[in-house]
Amino acid sequence: MAVSPVMNKSNASTQPATNQGNSAADLTQSFMTLLVAQMKNQDPINPMDNNQLTSQLAQFNTAAGVEKLNTTLEGVGVMVNSMQQMNASQWIGSSVFIEGDSVISGAQGGNKDFAFNLDSDASKVAVTLTDRSGNAYTADIKHAKAGVNKYTFDDLVNFTPSAPSLDASSVFKVAFSAANEDGSTPNITSLKKGKVDSVSFTNGGAKLQLGLNGSVPIGKVYLIE
């Protein structure tokens, strides 16, 4: 784009100040201000290229459109976050599974469920129950699918060395390991069960209050019942 080779002091002093903002609207205003100044001082023998002008204007319009789109998406994000927080209040009284060590208890009202999450299918998952004395009992679950898998104590069979008894005093820690016939080992995450007592709201989103299990963001919940 050609401009006048030299601008004298009188011309320079009369040029309008350009906007120093960084938004698309500010940059477009600065461009238009400079464009008017260039048109007033262009070399008549070598005028500005219209195609170049059109291309630059199109780029500024695109920038303005992207900025408006980003603003719209930010508003949608705020709205979605607000809806999630309101919906989270409906989880009070529900049971959820989050990452943590599973425990099975034979006490009345005790937890007999356990769950784990797989990042891919597994031919076999070894489930090991360890009692308070350190005695370990292992059973296998065949052909577990990717995602959350939930079972109860009664689903376990073929224990090694023998099946443990689950009476009112029994408490077992549960551990998992996954394997495939080709030797690969899918990533497995142990999940623990908790009950939602209440929901708190923070700038980072809603958090579920799980009593003795502490609090957890709703994004950390693997399964809700």
Score class of each variant (00 low, 15 high):
residue 113 D to G: 12
residue 113 D to V: 14
residue 114 F to M: 08
residue 114 F to E: 01
residue 115 A to S: 04
residue 115 A to C: 00
residue 115 A to P: 01
residue 115 A to L: 03
residue 115 A to F: 00
residue 115 A to E: 03
residue 116 F to D: 07
residue 117 N to E: 09
residue 117 N to T: 05
residue 118 L to N: 01
residue 118 L to C: 01
residue 120 S to Q: 13
residue 121 D to V: 06
residue 121 D to P: 04
residue 124 K to Q: 14
residue 125 V to S: 01
residue 129 L to R: 00
residue 129 L to G: 02
residue 133 S to L: 14
residue 133 S to T: 13
residue 134 G to T: 02
residue 135 N to S: 13
residue 136 A to F: 09
residue 137 Y to D: 10
residue 137 Y to S: 12
residue 138 T to W: 00
residue 138 T to D: 03
residue 142 K to V: 06
residue 143 H to S: 15
residue 144 A to Y: 08
residue 144 A to G: 06
residue 145 K to H: 09
residue 146 A to G: 11
residue 146 A to C: 07
residue 147 G to M: 03
residue 148 V to R: 00
residue 148 V to T: 02
residue 149 N to Y: 01
residue 150 K to N: 01
residue 151 Y to F: 10
residue 156 L to M: 08
residue 157 V to G: 05
residue 158 N to F: 08
residue 159 F to H: 06
residue 161 P to A: 03
residue 162 S to I: 05
residue 165 S to G: 14
residue 166 L to V: 10
residue 167 D to I: 13
residue 167 D to F: 07
residue 168 A to C: 10
residue 168 A to P: 10
residue 169 S to C: 12
residue 169 S to N: 14
residue 170 S to V: 07
residue 175 A to C: 08
residue 177 S to K: 15
residue 178 A to L: 10
residue 178 A to T: 10
residue 179 A to T: 14
residue 179 A to I: 13
residue 180 N to R: 12
residue 180 N to A: 13
residue 185 T to C: 10
residue 185 T to K: 15
residue 186 P to H: 07
